[in-house]
Nucleic acid binder design. Structure first.
Ligand SMILES: [Mn+2]
Ligand SMILES: [Mn+2]
Ligand SMILES: [Zn+2]
Ligand SMILES: [Zn+2]
Lengths: 155, 155
DNA sequence: CTATATATTGATAATAGTTATCAATATCAA
DNA sequence: TTGATATTGATAACTATTATCAATATATAG
């Protein structure tokens, strides 16, 4: 039952595992080896990952872990704001870390699917102003710039 | 074969039907009563429409018109830029007129699904600048602000 | 006006990503 | 240790959309 080795004593700062465990407890959900492994493998990726890649890597480590559990766990991770979900490529979601990652929007090449991350403080400010103007409480936003990258333009 | 009554002589300005017919001819596609009816019924709606509403209204007028034809025709209308497709509500597309309609982005209430349209010239300008900075040729963008509207906040 | 090549149609099967169902099992607070 | 209940994996179901295909309609050339 001691599958949890992430509470080493020198760790003073809350990490993703602590946040996840706290969230689960708060919601009366349970800390399971499957949830731990999914978070571990998710964190081992850089940038944007899709379900397929996650599932593939999980299978290598534990072929018995079902895909339904992967979907379920990702949903919880999004709920507790450790993970952000995107749907850039129409119908197929991807995920990226959100914990201690600066907010950014995306530039997406429609040919090679490469993405570039950017921030623009003024745009963010104007978004808030627009919401105020119309009496909305802004919860989130989606801003994606679709174009063709330098590489793809050459071909 | 004379199902076309949209070429009245006093019509000097190109309308949606002319544009559509030209586009079809250009692509070696054919002008059919089904395509005409779909465009007519689409234009009879204001704002954003989904497939379901379109199909329902079409059925009233011609129950034999199949849903596949509706999907196919909408795709052509999007291709020829008479129509713009959105996927606000996750997995269910909606459509709106694009011909002679000013570009705008959307504020969306996540509770009642009401949308408000807005434009912000500076945001548009910054989007272009960002693309230039990263060597992208901007093709389109998606900007959706998700929030809670005044009405929904009261409840 | 034909005839002919080929685009279109409607019915329906297929697809893809995701969610629901359910009985067996695991977690965890008491 | 126990027991209430959350979780799991297998798989069926679901939803929006697309593909398939034989019958039919359109456009164009003769
Ligand atoms: Mn990102
Ligand atoms: Mn609109
Ligand atoms: Zn590219
Ligand atoms: Zn609302």
């Amino acid at each position: 039952m001691d599958f949890d080795n992430n509470n080493l004593s020198q760790n003073k700062m809350l990490n993703e595992f602590d946040i996840f465990k706290d969230f689960l407890q708060q919601k009366n959900l349970r800390w399971t080896p499957q949830r731990k492994m999914i978070l571990e493998i998710f964190l081992s990726f850089d940038g944007h990952v899709d379900i397929e890649s996650l599932h593939q890597k999980i299978q290598e480590q534990d072929p018995s872990l079902g895909i339904a559990t992967l979907y379920r766990t990702l949903k919880i991770l999004v709920d507790c704001e450790l993970v952000e979900a995107h749907s850039f490529h129409d119908g197929k979601k991807s995920y990226e870390r959100k914990f201690r990652v600066q907010h950014h929007d995306h530039l997406i090449c429609t040919q090679c699917e490469k993405t570039i991350e950017f921030e623009h403080a003024l745009i963010e400010k104007y978004q808030i102003e627009i919401c105020e103007e119309y009496g909305f409480t802004l919860k989130s936003h989606k801003m994606e710039l679709m174009g063709v990258c330098e590489n793809c333009r050459k071909e």
